[in-house]
Design a protein around this nucleic acid. Sequence first.
DNA 1: ACTGGCTCCTGAGGGC
DNA 2: TGCCCTCAGGAGCCAG
Length: 271
Amino acid sequence: MPELPEVETTRRGIEPYLLARCVAHIEIRQPRLRWPISSSVAERLQGQPICAVERRGKYLLLRVHGGAALVHLGMSGSLRICDPLTPAGPHDHFDLELDDGTILRFQDPRRFGALLWAPDDPYSHPLLRDLGPEPLSEAFSGSYLYRRTRNRAGAIKNLIMDSRIVVGVGNIYASEALFLAGVHPARAAGRISAARCDRIAEAIRRVLGEAIDLGGTTLRDFRDGLGRPGYFQLRLRVYGRAGEPCPHCAQLIRSQRLGQRSSYYCTRCQR
DNA sequence: ACTGGCTCCTGAGGGC
DNA sequence: TGCCCTCAGGAGCCAG
């Protein structure tokens, strides 16, 4: 579910409730997420003021003195601000209780998400250390993408979804960006020209930027930190639209599995 | 160094 | 109504 726009939307939603508040208690109901929740997370957060709520790729960082809690939403995770009287549901795996009574609640039916402790400089944690650039930063550009794709035989769609190349682009936005750029998702990455790498990089920035502006994409269950849905699903041009006409040329949109994921594209507009 | 495949889970939806 | 199958938005990890 959550790709970069959904994680950023969540971050913006929860940040005002967390900043400068102290963590009073952590309630863990189900420690078995992607990695078991270690007791050290609770120990290190307890009593600490949260000094920043940051995002790196699809990871959220709740920074405190001495490190940060890393939260990943996996495929079905969400974070919600609620009050202590809200009853916890079966997939509400942990609560961060703040000193003003506010609760940050993590729900994740598929349990692919994570809560980890990253000591000292959290950006040197093994999960963050080797991540590629943020797609909306200066470091990500067409020339960067061109350089990183040389001699790569794999499909361009798999490459832009590889977090070591660029972070935050999941299955939905990869299809959308390649449609905007006019590039076929299965095209060998190393054989794409510099000019077309420019178009792909620009399309990724545009799609992610628009999706953040619309509060993310809610296909089934995404909600922001306050329980509100996103609206980018209304702007999806090809994702999930196999058999419907292409918005540019009316040719029927096709779908194909690429690296175990469904890809959607127009054979006339994308080469 | 790359590449493709497997894996962790639960829930929804379609076919019969 | 119920059972079985397939698929789902992530991404670390492994073998080749």
